[in-house]
Nucleic acid binder design. Structure first.
Lengths: 204, 204
DNA sequence: TTCCGCCTCTTTCCAGCGTCAAGATTCCAG
DNA sequence: CTGGAATCTTGACGCTGGAAAGAGGCGGAA
């Protein structure tokens, strides 16, 4: 096996390496502190190398966001799949997965919903975001299968907004300033059950 | 050579001028596109002048965010004060004011809830954000005056999260991609009434 | 095999950025 | 009237993203 030298001229996996170092850098420095050069530095290449894999820094951010949406979708389905309690249980669990991902990757989550990533609207990013949206809509519709399309849409709005809003405000520090992590989880679950009850009540 | 009156050596109102030009610049270029030098340029001063009024660019952004929270609070109370339908009507109207402000100042709204502003946690910013939080809590409590403190808190979480989440997702393009402005308002109002009904039902 | 074209990466350069330091100007307390 | 303090300008530093040009390595064609 021809193991590559310590620093070969051709990296070979630079796109992946940049996505990895970029994600770490993003969580470390935040969106404003993110720089292409530092990202390249961590991947062990010169500052101009990324240009051959990402057209611009916004293009790289869009890629990070797209990967984030894919991972978010996985987190949601994984949590939902191990849930009990039928469709309603799945809806709540999916919300738990959503919140857990956001809490574990706050800067990435912020980027995904920040419009900074959407400056360069790549098809990959749009598709990844759309997949997450459909996941949410499907979970809501499974709870109220006999409701009208309009009601389903409005309940999907409602469910998505509640979950997204709560975790956003929490990460921003607008909710539960000095509460313990344990207490915050209780508040999150409480919100999720109130949301699910509303979906059932209005839609059923 | 005498300086033109229009641009005297001492500006006199530079802090205000920077806040004004900064706000416009923010909406134009977004958070990442915001630069201190362009801000100074628009205010008609040299690039180093802002340093005497704002310690850093983050300090200026924090000021913009703080002013944003004050204005948001005003928008909420103004809308609530002209509402009918008692406490519940006020709660819904306050949500309308919240959404209207966000829709009218998307970049500022994003900054206010972006944690980029909170890097430099000024007392002014913290107080302004706290005032908005109290406004929301008060509107919820007025609807369910006899509920327990815990229920009140959870309903405040719920109401705040729904409203904030909906408008955030809308501004980000995650909700209602090709719907008309009119249709979006209907969806927003529908969400607000579902939220208010839940508060009444759970808390009452 | 050798060779040539293409892709990848480095080096160099540019304008613009935030911030600091020093000098110029104006204001105002004494 | 005067001198210090506040405000603003100019200039400099190291950083940034991006463009341009050259070097290195891969792989298909001869």
């Amino acid at each position: 096996m021809a193991r590559p030298k310590a620093q070969p001229y051709h990296h070979g996996q630079l796109r992946e390496a940049l996505a990895t170092s970029g994600r770490a850098l993003l969580e470390e420095k935040g969106i404003r502190g993110f720089t292409l050069r530092e990202c390249a530095r961590r991947a062990g290449v010169s500052h101009a190398a990324p240009a051959y894999h990402f057209a611009s820094i916004d293009d790289l951010l869009a890629e990070l966001a797209a990967r984030g949406f894919q991972e978010l979708g996985s987190a949601m389905t994984a949590e939902a799949d191990r849930a009990e309690g039928g469709a309603t249980g799945r809806l709540v669990a999916q919300g738990v997965g959503y919140m857990a991902f956001a809490a574990g990757n706050p800067a990435l989550f912020q980027l995904m919903f920040s419009r900074e990533a959407n400056r360069l609207e790549t098809p990959t990013l749009a598709a990844a975001a759309e997949a997450v949206r459909k996941l949410q809509a499907a979970a809501v519709e499974a709870v109220i299968p006999h409701a009208s399309g309009e009601i389903k849409q409005r309940m999907a709005d409602f469910a998505g907004a509640s979950v997204h809003g709560f975790i956003s405000l929490l990460l921003e520090g607008e909710i539960g300033g000095k509460d313990s992590s344990r207490a915050l989880k209780v508040r999150g679950l409480s919100l999720l059950s109130a949301m699910a009850e509303t979906v059932v009540r209005v839609g059923g």
